Simulated assay, not measured.
Amino acid sequence: MKTVREMNIGELAAYVCSHLDRYGIYVALGGGAVVSIYASDNFVSMDLDFIDLLQTSRLKLKKVLKEIGFEEKNRYFVSEETEFFIEFPSGPLAVGNEPVKKLAELQFETGKLRLLSPTDCVKDRLSAFYHWGDRQCLQQAVWVAEMKPIDWIEVERWSRQEGAAEKFVEFRAELQGLR
């Protein structure tokens, strides 16, 4: 198996997720790291945002992550072996105002990774665009939608529920303009 130093973001995320699983700590990857995995080389995120699905104590997280070389520094977990760092944003796992109902799983040489589905990843990025006008997140949503199959009916339904039907139209126009 690869060393931590040799792992790309997906491999490292799967390694961490599988290691935590062995201790009954169930996490799911969200945020920009999911964009990095789904949109290949279009976007690089350095942080792995894991949502702890069972609200594990910080003390237990520290102990278990130390076994694979990650030490807590401020609110992050870092390792001398990699530039990637781990964060545990508070849950629950949601996109906009809606909880995530189903997670995706990817298998890597380094383990199994639970993460947002491509559709929920797009919704997560669009949430930042809809609510804060973050155009970088709009671009990330476009990249994921170009690379992965998306449930367009679901994204449109969710967008209306978020009060962003007009911005959904802007997202679709942005996507069509790049193709």
Score class of each variant (00 low, 15 high):
68 I>F: 03
32 G>M: 05
7 M>S: 02
38 Y>D: 05
5 R>L: 07
129 F>A: 04
58 R>K: 13
139 Q>V: 00
31 G>Y: 08
156 E>A: 13
138 L>F: 05
154 E>C: 08
74 N>I: 06
67 E>P: 07
116 L>N: 10
110 T>D: 04
4 V>M: 05
127 S>F: 10
105 E>L: 04
64 V>F: 05
23 Y>E: 05
84 F>W: 02
77 F>D: 07
125 R>Q: 11
104 A>W: 08
13 A>R: 01
138 L>V: 03
10 G>K: 03
7 M>K: 02
127 S>Y: 13
42 N>Y: 08
175 L>S: 09
44 V>Y: 11
23 Y>C: 00
133 G>T: 13
65 L>V: 04
122 V>R: 10
99 P>K: 09
130 Y>H: 12
151 D>K: 04
15 Y>D: 00
178 L>C: 04
48 L>Y: 09
78 V>E: 10
100 V>N: 10
119 T>Q: 08
98 E>K: 13
58 R>I: 08
67 E>G: 00
169 V>R: 14
34 V>H: 06
31 G>T: 06
102 K>W: 06
95 V>T: 14
11 E>S: 03
2 K>D: 09
38 Y>N: 05
78 V>M: 01
148 K>G: 02
166 E>G: 09
97 N>G: 15
10 G>H: 02
102 K>F: 08
85 F>D: 01
79 S>H: 06
145 A>L: 09
121 C>F: 01
122 V>L: 12
117 S>N: 10
133 G>H: 07
123 K>M: 13
39 A>E: 00
15 Y>E: 00
150 I>G: 03
173 A>C: 10
68 I>R: 09
16 V>F: 01
43 F>I: 04
165 A>Y: 14
36 S>W: 04
156 E>M: 11
21 D>Y: 12
157 R>D: 15
7 M>F: 04
85 F>Q: 10
136 Q>T: 08
21 D>Q: 10
110 T>K: 04
53 L>W: 14
168 F>H: 15
140 Q>W: 02
37 I>T: 02
7 M>Q: 01
162 E>I: 09
82 T>G: 03
9 I>D: 00
12 L>F: 04
17 C>Y: 07
67 E>I: 01
84 F>C: 03
50 F>L: 05
55 Q>E: 15
138 L>C: 11
36 S>Q: 01
45 S>V: 04
66 K>M: 04
